[in-house]
């Protein structure tokens, strides 16, 4: 009972402080009202990873920062901002707090936020919402941004098939999910389009934040004569780069294919670079694009936007590809854009 008393006292103290402080809090929240309220404000909610995840949260935030810079805005309630979620239970409070802080357009980065965005959009019809990697149906104020990453992965597969010496290649995914499956499907299809005899070894680390697992998986795969590994594993992919660099320093010829951003700089080591190419998922330019459209009052609410090779929503970087391979990749890219090649987004 004493312990209970002690903790109740703790809580009472907190609430007491809360009440007294909120009572006099009005002056201090108004500390930025010099800026005019006509500017458009945007904010994003991360899906659990930070904005420095070297993957799509980071890409989204970079896009938002670029947008802010373009319009001379600064980070904060009168410009652009991000709310980090440490767990799924932070989604709804984060969105509600952004709404209360009057951000006009709110981005949910990642399929995990689908339900929360849908609910919030229904309750706040005047705010624009966007969801990345998922579709929110029947909401006129939600734009759903999906990425046809199977297309860029197909190109990575083509590049891989043309670069492998051992005819054994690997794929390391983060969490097994529909979004990551599009990478796997496109990659496998691309490899087999060039040479059906190449063996594709698919492994999942089960996490987007386990570089140690990525490293041990990759080391095992490289030792198994697989000389190119494609990653679609967020932070886990960093471990694949570490493994490749360690082996490359010992003189072994191995490659990594980066994901989401151009990961050329992550593959650099003294004496070379292990990045063969990177599949680029331009979440950042989608964020920038949608923010701009929202600013001009042309927000595509209710629409499902498909970002693909044609509209540069996804792409592939040249990095370590030879001129000859790059040429063939470009040809394959043209074929997809013109519709001659159709890439499936599901694993067969």
């Amino acid at each position: 009972m004493k312990k209970a008393l002690a903790t109740s006292a703790t809580a009472l103290a907190i609430i007491g402080l809360g009440i007294t402080l909120t009572g006099c809090g009005h002056q201090s929240t108004a500390n930025g009202e010099k800026t005019k309220s006509t500017t458009h404000t945007v904010a994003l909610v991360t899906d659990g990873g930070g904005i420095d995840d070297k993957s799509f949260n980071q890409s989204a935030w970079e896009g938002m920062k670029a947008w802010g810079k373009e319009h001379g805005l600064s980070k904060g309630v009168h410009g652009y901002n991000y709310a980090q979620s440490t767990s799924n239970s932070d989604f709804a409070p984060n969105i509600n707090k952004l709404i209360k802080a009057n951000y006009k357009t709110i981005f949910g980065i990642g399929f995990n936020l689908q339900q929360t965005v849908s609910d919030a959009a229904q309750a706040n019809p005047k705010t624009n919402f966007a969801i990345v990697d998922a579709v929110v149906p029947n909401r006129k104020n939600v734009a759903s941004a999906t990425f046809q990453t199977e297309q860029s992965s197909y190109l990575a597969g083509v590049a891989t098939a043309l670069s492998t010496k051992t005819n054994r290649v690997g794929f390391i995914g983060g969490q097994k999910s529909a979004v990551i499956s599009t990478f796997q499907a496109g990659f496998t299809e691309g490899v087999h389009a060039v040479n059906p005899k190449i063996k594709v070894d698919v492994k999942y680390a089960g996490s987007f934040t386990a570089p140690d697992k990525g490293q041990s998986l990759a080391t095992a795969m490289y030792n198994n004569q697989e000389d190119v590994i494609m990653t679609a594993a967020g932070g886990t992919g960093n471990g694949v780069f570490t493994a490749a660099k360690n082996l490359a320093k010992d003189g072994k010829k191995v490659w990594v294919i980066g994901a989401d951003r151009d990961q050329k700089s992550d593959g650099a080591y003294k004496g070379g670079n292990v990045t063969l190419t990177s599949t680029i998922k331009n979440v950042g330019s989608a964020v920038e694009d949608l923010s701009n459209r929202a600013m001009k009052d042309q927000f595509p609410g209710g629409e499902v936007l498909k970002y693909n090779l044609k509209n540069h929503g996804v792409d592939i970087s040249r990095d370590g590809l030879s001129a000859q391979t790059w040429q063939k990749v470009q040809a394959a890219k043209e074929a997809i854009i013109s519709g001659k090649t159709k890439v499936s987004d599901t694993v067969k």
Binding site: M1, K3, T7, S8, T10, A11, I14, G18, T86
Partner: peptide, 19 residues
Amino acid sequence: AGGNPLGILPAALLFSGLS
């Protein structure tokens, strides 16, 4: 809360309030 079922209430409030 020292395992006290009633003490858990304010302790949980403290946790959620902070987060």
